[in-house]
Design a protein around this nucleic acid. Sequence first.
DNA 1: ATGGGTGCAAAGTGTTTGCAAGTAT
DNA 2: ATACTTGCAAACACTTTGCACCCAT
Lengths: 130, 130
Amino acid sequence: MKSRQRNTKQRKMIVDAVQKADLDHPSADDIYLYVREKDFKISRGTVYRNLHQLADNGKVQHVRIPGVDRFDCRTDLHYHLLCTGCKKVSDVPIPYQTELDQTITQQTDYEIVQHLTVFEGLCPLCRKKS
Amino acid sequence: MKSRQRNTKQRKMIVDAVQKADLDHPSADDIYLYVREKDFKISRGTVYRNLHQLADNGKVQHVRIPGVDRFDCRTDLHYHLLCTGCKKVSDVPIPYQTELDQTITQQTDYEIVQHLTVFEGLCPLCRKKS
DNA sequence: ATGGGTGCAAAGTGTTTGCAAGTAT
DNA sequence: ATACTTGCAAACACTTTGCACCCAT
């Protein structure tokens, strides 16, 4: 009954795109547009389906950011920084606080799995413009 | 040139709805459905427009949660808890860490305005079911 | 060969918006 | 009277999905 995932060229291109340094925290559509330069036949459906499958398998991280969701080749939990001007997303240089999840699990009747934190502000470029 | 906002009955009903205890962290659509019981002519556009205006004026808080956005009558910054099963949103009983914003402002070249944190896990009811 | 994967297009969600008519001030 | 608001419907942005064909194994 074992079903295996296949190695399609589309999937490979999508993984590559997420890992591309210049596509920093790309959205699904960023990835679609990027991959489409190599394969003009690829469809958005394929990109979305693969991104979710890759996220389920821990190959990429699905980063939920207000506005549009992003995808990250870093798969460890970490915090993000969103520029409210240009919508650029960056990583935050402080470690994930695992103990917070324990604290909240103890203080509530929930079983916390994780938390997500997004810092919002203006990046240097956008600050200069405003 | 001063333009004032008017007190329409629609706006009043929408504020009331956000403050209703039984509508806990309602989405725009929850509010629309609730208000529509009193005024079957009200439109979704009116609800969205008013919610944004009220949020801009600090009368309600716009809470961005993965999935659908919610609205909160508590206007102070605080963290939220999302049940990944039933999607219920609750407040988290730990204070907002203002100092984190300062820390990140110092450690990055951004000017941080705020951060949002959402804890995810299963509520007692959903845990029982699974 | 066979079952996972693809492209396509349609449909689904949640939200925004242009406009003419309505209404609070 | 003025200009903010409304209801309506169309438009939007993003994402999901049904289906017939395709292709990695």
